[in-house]
Amino acid sequence: GSPGIQSFLPPGWEMRIAPNGRPFFIDHNTKTTTWEDPRLK
């Protein structure tokens, strides 16, 4: 199987799917959430 997208996120980050189907990202380091992919910064 191919590695999940989770493995490509920075340490402490998690990806979830919102009720509307959009992915969002949780930064457990700062306890914040964002719509922006942290890998694109």
Rank of each mutant, 00 (worst) to 15 (best):
G1F: 11
G1P: 13
G1M: 12
G1V: 12
G1T: 12
G1N: 13
G1S: 11
G1E: 11
S2G: 11
S2H: 11
S2Y: 11
S2F: 13
S2P: 13
S2A: 14
S2N: 12
S2W: 11
S2E: 12
P3M: 11
P3W: 09
P3L: 12
P3D: 13
P3G: 12
P3T: 14
P3F: 13
P3A: 12
P3K: 06
G4L: 12
G4N: 13
G4I: 11
G4A: 14
G4K: 05
G4M: 11
G4Y: 07
G4V: 12
I5L: 14
I5K: 12
I5E: 13
I5R: 09
I5A: 14
Q6T: 14
Q6G: 13
Q6H: 13
Q6F: 03
Q6Y: 03
Q6A: 14
Q6P: 12
Q6N: 13
Q6K: 05
Q6S: 13
S7W: 10
S7V: 11
S7D: 15
S7E: 14
S7T: 14
S7M: 10
S7C: 13
S7G: 15
S7N: 14
S7Q: 15
S7A: 14
S7I: 10
F8Y: 13
F8V: 15
F8I: 15
F8E: 15
F8L: 15
F8G: 15
F8D: 15
F8A: 15
F8R: 14
L9W: 04
L9K: 01
L9V: 02
L9M: 10
L9D: 01
L9F: 07
L9T: 01
L9H: 01
P10I: 04
P10M: 04
P10D: 04
P10F: 05
P10Q: 04
P10T: 02
P10H: 04
P10E: 04
P10S: 04
P10V: 04
P11K: 12
P11G: 07
P11R: 10
P11Y: 10
P11W: 08
P11E: 10
P11Q: 09
G12W: 05
G12S: 03
G12L: 03
G12V: 01
G12E: 03
G12F: 05
G12M: 04
G12H: 06
W13L: 01
W13S: 00
W13E: 01
W13P: 00
W13R: 00
W13D: 00
W13V: 02
W13H: 00
W13K: 00
W13Y: 03
E14I: 05
E14R: 01
E14M: 02
E14V: 06
E14L: 01
E14F: 03
E14D: 06
E14P: 00
E14S: 08
E14H: 03
E14T: 09
M15E: 15
M15Q: 08
M15D: 01
M15V: 08
M15C: 09
M15G: 02
M15N: 01
M15P: 00
M15H: 03
M15S: 04
M15Y: 05
M15F: 05
M15T: 04
M15L: 10
M15W: 04
R16L: 14
R16T: 08
R16N: 07
R16D: 07
R16G: 10
R16E: 07
R16S: 09
R16F: 11
I17H: 12
I17P: 04
I17K: 08
I17R: 13
I17L: 12
I17W: 14
I17T: 09
A18Y: 06
A18T: 10
A18E: 06
A18P: 05
A18C: 08
A18I: 03
A18G: 10
A18V: 04
A18H: 11
A18D: 11
P19A: 11
P19W: 09
P19Y: 08
P19Q: 10
P19N: 11
P19E: 10
P19S: 13
P19V: 09
P19G: 09
N20L: 02
N20C: 15
N20T: 08
N20W: 06
N20R: 01
N20P: 02
N20F: 03
N20Q: 03
N20S: 11
N20E: 04
N20G: 10
N20D: 11
G21K: 06
G21T: 04
G21D: 02
G21F: 03
G21E: 03
G21I: 00
G21V: 00
G21C: 01
G21W: 01
G21R: 03
R22M: 12
R22E: 08
R22H: 08
R22F: 09
R22L: 12
R22I: 11
R22G: 02
R22Q: 10
R22P: 02
P23Q: 07
P23K: 07
P23A: 08
P23N: 06
P23I: 08
P23R: 06
P23D: 02
P23E: 07
P23H: 09
F24M: 10
F24H: 05
F24G: 00
F24N: 02
F24Y: 14
F24W: 11
F24I: 11
F24P: 00
F24L: 11
F25A: 00
F25K: 00
F25V: 00
F25Q: 00
F25H: 00
F25P: 00
F25W: 08
I26V: 09
I26Q: 02
I26K: 02
I26W: 06
I26G: 00
I26Y: 10
I26L: 07
I26F: 09
I26P: 00
I26S: 01
D27Q: 03
D27I: 01
D27S: 02
D27N: 09
D27P: 00
D27F: 03
D27M: 02
D27V: 01
D27R: 01
D27G: 00
H28C: 08
H28L: 08
H28A: 04
H28I: 07
H28W: 12
H28V: 06
H28G: 05
N29I: 08
N29P: 02
N29Y: 08
N29T: 11
N29W: 08
N29R: 06
N29V: 09
T30A: 07
T30P: 00
T30E: 06
T30N: 11
T30M: 07
T30Y: 05
T30W: 03
T30Q: 05
T30R: 06
T30L: 07
T30K: 08
T30F: 05
T30C: 05
T30V: 03
K31C: 14
K31M: 13
K31I: 06
K31R: 13
T32W: 09
T32N: 07
T32G: 05
T32V: 10
T32S: 08
T32D: 04
T32I: 11
T32Q: 11
T32P: 00
T32Y: 09
T33G: 07
T33H: 09
T33W: 14
T33Q: 13
T33F: 12
T33L: 12
T33A: 14
T33I: 13
T34W: 05
T34N: 02
T34V: 05
T34I: 04
T34S: 07
T34P: 00
T34K: 03
T34Q: 08
W35L: 07
W35P: 02
W35M: 06
W35G: 02
W35S: 05
W35Y: 10
W35D: 05
W35I: 05
W35A: 03
W35E: 05
W35N: 05
E36G: 04
E36T: 07
E36I: 08
E36C: 06
E36L: 09
E36D: 11
E36K: 07
E36S: 06
E36M: 06
E36Q: 09
E36H: 09
D37H: 05
D37R: 06
D37P: 15
D37E: 05
D37C: 08
D37G: 03
D37I: 04
D37Y: 08
D37S: 04
D37M: 07
D37W: 09
P38H: 01
P38I: 04
P38L: 02
P38T: 01
P38M: 03
P38A: 01
P38C: 06
P38W: 00
P38E: 01
P38K: 01
P38Q: 02
P38G: 01
P38V: 03
R39H: 06
R39K: 04
R39P: 03
R39I: 06
R39A: 09
R39V: 06
R39E: 03
R39W: 13
R39G: 11
L40R: 06
L40G: 15
L40I: 12
L40V: 12
L40D: 15
L40K: 13
L40P: 15
L40F: 13
L40T: 10
L40Y: 13
L40N: 15
L40M: 10
K41L: 15
K41T: 15
K41D: 15
K41I: 15
K41N: 15
